[in-house]
Design a protein around this nucleic acid. Sequence first.
DNA 1: TATATTTGTATCGTGTGCGATATAATTGTA
DNA 2: TACAATTATATCGCACACGATACAAATATA
Lengths: 152, 152
Amino acid sequence: MNTDGTELFLENQLCFPLYAASRLTTQIYNELLKEVELTYPQYLVLLVLWQHGSLSVNEVCQKLLLASNTVTPLLKRLEEKQLLVRKRSDDDERVVKILLTEKGVALKQSVAQIPHKIVDSFKDDSVSLEEIVSLQKTLFKLIDLLNRKQLE
Amino acid sequence: MNTDGTELFLENQLCFPLYAASRLTTQIYNELLKEVELTYPQYLVLLVLWQHGSLSVNEVCQKLLLASNTVTPLLKRLEEKQLLVRKRSDDDERVVKILLTEKGVALKQSVAQIPHKIVDSFKDDSVSLEEIVSLQKTLFKLIDLLNRKQLE
DNA sequence: TATATTTGTATCGTGTGCGATATAATTGTA
DNA sequence: TACAATTATATCGCACACGATACAAATATA
């Protein structure tokens, strides 16, 4: 294990490929999301709401690893689109609950075919399923590590 | 190989971890870059210029996989900081050449210790060097694949 | 119970990313 | 040589991200 190599590796070859791969993947999503007039971050918010039902702003933040200064405006835009409603909690007046509207619930059907299209986008001999599985595993470990560092 | 599993995997577990890991990693860089008053994208521009010397706007775009609508304002901010100069090429009047100033060249020394600090940030038992190497490899394959799709 | 601290959400300002488009210079072609 | 297509760069508008900060509600503590 070469210390110099490790440093250069992390320096020039880990952060940038993460940055580039993230942008390129998001671009593919955005193309597919165009027809339902959603952005990728908006789609992420809906994904967690479809999965978990009603959540507080803070819970959405936790799931997406984003802060309220990003999530609040995002939720406002989704409320303008009438996909959800923001409602102050009665139990704790600080908490704002996010509730999907009928339109918001219904939208799930309209994006149901996106996973298929994404799979098609990725269909290629250059990256195997095993590699993707391994990639995903390591990414989650990395996220966990970085998330812990951040809270220190 | 389960087709359903693959779809769900790519759908919910590849794009989001890329997005989250990229943001979290960039945040660590930004903290370290604060003292030299650079952002992470600005640092990327300087990295390619330090490595390759004078480049055209288009060459910077190619290296960073960004378009001119992102890179041009980035270069303008770096020019305001007097780290580089933009100069129209004589050969081809469409081309703008980017030249590092003395200050821009000198800044390389000020960020020389960042790789060490990043390595420290990542020092953890949860992710091995082998995993990171494998991660990086797959990311570059993925970038290549996505880049090719984009040009189609 | 008063007050200090913490928590949940929001606001503000700056810097990206990027789709759409514009413009000028160059190249290709009839 | 005209004129169409391409190329390099820039502009504009919008939607994030995020650091810094504000503020009210809840909780902890003296």
